[in-house]
């Protein structure tokens, strides 16, 4: 690990000022940052610890809820305002990592966690995301965990977050503060596909701090569900996951959310799948059709081709379980 300076800021403005300097990285739970520093993937010269900032509250926000960026994954998952009203969020969080990690991991850090692509995590390997223009060995190398949706010829790295998949399904908004003041970024615009600049992963600008996330009330939030498929029973990233939510009235789906995880370069809203559902009764047939629509345009590679079928089934199953549950 490269030696670095450490400072702890107690005021948001001080922290933002530090964030403008070169080589600064913010620290929240550290479960992504410190790991990557140990691997030599991140080499900040200064680490600015945000944990003393007053950004940890979870509270009602009109009909919705506001979640501080420093709230831990555990706090969010079990919070009474979340567990009942937004089951998909609670389920997604609890399917991630391990209790120890969830106790450390923050909401802001979770949104900004980096890909688990093994080549990215090995500084001795080329990787366009880590070192622009060095190449993408995952394309033709070992790519079992890589993405099939939202890929480019520069990068096929999967976005690993479970929580972000649920937040996208819930139309959440990410609130950030920078030199120029506050901005509100809808979840759908927060993460970006790699295109030709895989180093750019989010809409966050240099030095900006995520202050909180708001999740609105919605007709489908309460009828929502997360299904995660992985290589072992627990403590593994998703090979495929789906956050689904349905607003059903009069036996017909009024609105739907289908978001895929584990298979795409960013939390992946499958609008074609949603379209398959809306206006129809919630039946197994339309769930299968939604699954098929969700993976339309998928680009499989040598070791991850199975994800096409798996993602399809994940969507259909999540919808079936959701309707069965209600």
């Amino acid at each position: 690990m490269k030696p670095f300076a450490y400072s702890r800021e107690t005021g948001l403005d001080h922290a933002l000022a530090r964030g403008k300097e070169d080589g600064v990285r913010y620290l929240a739970g550290g479960t992504t940052l410190i790991d990557l520093m140990r691997l030599g993937v991140e080499e900040p010269s200064t680490v600015v610890d945000l944990r003393a900032l007053p950004l940890r509250d979870i509270k009602a926000d009109g009909d919705g809820v506001q979640i501080g960026a420093l709230a831990t994954n555990t706090e969010v998952a079990y919070h009474p305002l979340i567990a009942k009203a937004y089951p998909v969020l609670s389920e997604a969080l609890l399917s991630g990592a391990s209790p120890q990690l969830r106790n450390m991991a923050s909401v802001g850090g979770n949104l900004l966690q980096r890909t688990r692509c093994s080549y990215f995590r090995d500084p001795s390997s080329p990787c366009n995301k880590r070192m622009a223009g060095s190449g993408c060995p995952a394309l033709d190398g070992y790519n079992r965990s890589n993405a099939i949706l939202g890929v480019s010829s520069s990068c096929i790295a999967t976005h690993p977050s479970d929580m972000a998949v649920a937040l996208l399904a819930l139309d959440a908004v990410v609130h950030v503060r920078g030199g120029g003041g506050e901005r509100a970024v809808p979840m759908g615009d927060f993460h970006v596909a790699p295109g030709s600049t895989p180093a750019v992963e989010t809409a966050l600008q240099k030095g900006e701090i995520i202050t909180h996330v708001t999740v609105p009330a919605s007709p489908f939030a309460q009828r929502s569900h997360y299904v995660k498929v992985r290589d072992r029973a627990s403590y593994a990233f998703a090979l495929s996951s789906a956050a689904v939510a349905l607003d059903v009235s009069g036996g017909v789906v009024k609105s739907a959310r289908v978001v895929l995880g584990g298979v795409a370069t960013k939390p992946w809203r499958a609008t074609e799948a949603e379209a398959e559902l809306v206006g129809k009764p919630p039946t197994s047939m339309s769930f299968d059709a939604a699954g098929a629509a969700a993976v339309r345009g998928a680009v499989p590679r040598t070791h991850n081709a199975f994800k096409v079928e798996l993602a399809k089934r994940t969507v259909a199953r999540a919808l079936r379980d959701l309707v069965g549950k209600a």
Partner: peptide
């Protein structure tokens, strides 16, 4: 990696054992 013979799965996040 079949092209370089380098180990790709070299930590316990990539190399799964039962939990």
């Amino acid at each position: 990696d079949p092209r370089t013979s380098r180990v790709v799965t070299k930590d316990l996040a990539d190399y799964h054992v039962p939990v």
